[in-house]
Design a protein around this nucleic acid. Structure first.
Ligand SMILES: NC(=O)c1ccc[n+]([C@@H]2O[C@H](COP(=O)([O-])OP(=O)(O)OC[C@H]3O[C@@H](n4cnc5c(N)ncnc54)[C@H](O)[C@@H]3O)[C@@H](O)[C@H]2O)c1
Ligand SMILES: NC(=O)c1ccc[n+]([C@@H]2O[C@H](COP(=O)([O-])OP(=O)(O)OC[C@H]3O[C@@H](n4cnc5c(N)ncnc54)[C@H](O)[C@@H]3O)[C@@H](O)[C@H]2O)c1
Lengths: 229, 229
DNA sequence: CTGGGCTCGATACTTCAATATCGATACTGA
DNA sequence: TCAGTATCGATATTGAAGTATCGAGCCCAG
């Protein structure tokens, strides 16, 4: 059985929780590679992220990379495998729709290249914003989006318009044959089944934070720390 | 058994997945209240959010509000119960640390009052930003944070500084006796157990999106997959 | 060259969320 | 008035994620 077949088989039964943790591993692995480390144990990765070592090993198993006893996992190989697994080996091209508060922040964020994303265009409906330069991008009118997407092989749309405009803007993206939408509005978008929508809802995190503040027995930290020492 | 006792008992065994869904219900319930609706069935709530009716009923059960057969749940009572459950009946006061790209977006966001949050101050370390007005807030030097927090009964800190500055900035917040930190950096903060940290990681969502784009059998629409504690 | 100890992968167990099913209730409409 | 039905709450079942444990491999120290 080839490595690829193995990888594909495991991909089927991949839990989402695991996928969510991969970027954190990737970040640390890249830092280790920059230091020249060749191997790292799952135990070390776990300690940094307050996880159980066994979770890390199980997560890394889906990449198909084998660790060596006493040594750990090969850092560089693991980086490449995770990047390939997530499709981050080549950055996906994305357009941003809604060059407002949040849109400007995302346009100005330098870290997306590390996460397999490159914003190549910004669009807005407000005539006062169109034509202006924003964080190194010229804001274009929404009417030019379909041509831009088709010509530029754009795969993703980032949606940062006000809630009432969200569904209509999503429809424009869908008609432009975008493959996925990163949705920062609070609207549940209706899209055809071939379009993937990932909703990013700040209210969710805020609800968890508020709730934990009210919980008397809540523990601090980003997650449950394993056991001390 | 009083409603309060019931509510407190159920609060103990509340799952996080449920808490994450509450803001979505709340949003729709408020819209219904604005229309004058007095009752709404769990089935309707479920349809809007693409959930199973059973899930909605179980989620709403933790508020202690009882629904009536054939009628549904009392809208206004439910809103008040959810707000109280999350502690959103009075907005928590928060300071923002790091008035950069993302910080400016959050400062300019008008929707936080609906989520029980009020940003009352903005802080930065960059002398060029200090003193400037930003989205209606004067940016203050970090040294003034402790006094500001103590005097203003500030409970929350919003962390939007670059990653290398994150731990130090968190330490300032902790020393100022903040109760919770909303962490937008990619750093796992080390804080004492009485401080609650909620980490908001865009890379997680992006990883899920990328992965689903590569999954041939993935279906569209946004789902809210459960996350680890 | 040989035993100790760290680490890996595999398997079994536990916990919790999602789903299915059921009887009970109260409004609708004939 | 009373059958019909949408809806509720409760319980049981399924499934996924996290946890515990074990044997095996391999490096290193002595
Ligand atoms: N700002 C934040 O911190 C924040 C946080 C969480 C969620 N959000 C969500 O992000 C979205 C945008 O928030 P914001 O604060 O940036 O609002 P904003 O008003 O600052 O920006 C919205 C932008 O969208 C443009 N726009 C309006 N209608 C459009 C259309 N039909 N097509 C294209 N562009 C259009 C507007 O001209 C404006 O530039 C909202 O849905 C909000 O709920 C924002
Ligand atoms: N911009 C985005 O869209 C985005 C998205 C996801 C995550 N983030 C994260 O948010 C954080 C900020 O991102 P950004 O794009 O706003 O960066 P930024 O550089 O625009 O803003 C950072 C701000 O923090 C200030 N600062 C630096 N050191 C400080 C200190 N010790 N104390 C107080 N303030 C200090 C800087 O002066 C600057 O104003 C980063 O950790 C980034 O990873 C940003």
């Amino acid at each position: 059985m080839t490595n690829d077949t193995l990888s594909m088989e495991r991909m089927q039964r991949t839990g989402l929780s695991c996928v969510r943790r991969l970027p954190a591993y990737l970040q640390l692995l890249r830092a280790l590679r920059a230091e020249g480390r060749e191997f790292v144990s799952g135990t070390v990765l776990a300690r940094v992220h307050y996880l159980e070592p066994v979770i890390v090993r199980k997560d890394l198993a889906i990449t198909g990379v084998m660790g060596k006893p006493r040594l750990g996992f090969p850092v560089n190989e693991l980086i490449l495998a995770i990047e390939k697994f997530l499709g981050w080996d080549r950055a996906a091209r994305a357009v941003l729709v809604g060059a407002g508060n949040l849109g400007a922040a995302l346009l100005g964020y330098q870290g997306f290249e590390d996460f397999g994303l490159r914003i190549v265009g910004a669009f807005d409906a407000d005539p006062r914003k169109i034509g202006r330069e924003m964080k190194g991008h010229r804001v274009l009118p929404l009417q030019r989006l379909p041509g831009f997407v088709a010509r530029g092989k754009v795969e993703l749309g980032i949606l940062t318009v006000p809630a009432p405009a969200a569904q209509a803007a999503a429809a424009v993206l869908v008609r432009a044959r975008i493959r996925g939408i990163w949705n920062f509005t609070s609207v549940r978008l209706q899209v055809p089944p071939e379009v993937v929508v990932q909703k990013e809802d700040l209210a969710e995190g805020l609800a968890v934070l508020s709730h934990r503040l009210r919980q008397p027995g809540a523990q601090g930290g980003d997650s449950v720390p394993p056991r001390q020492v």
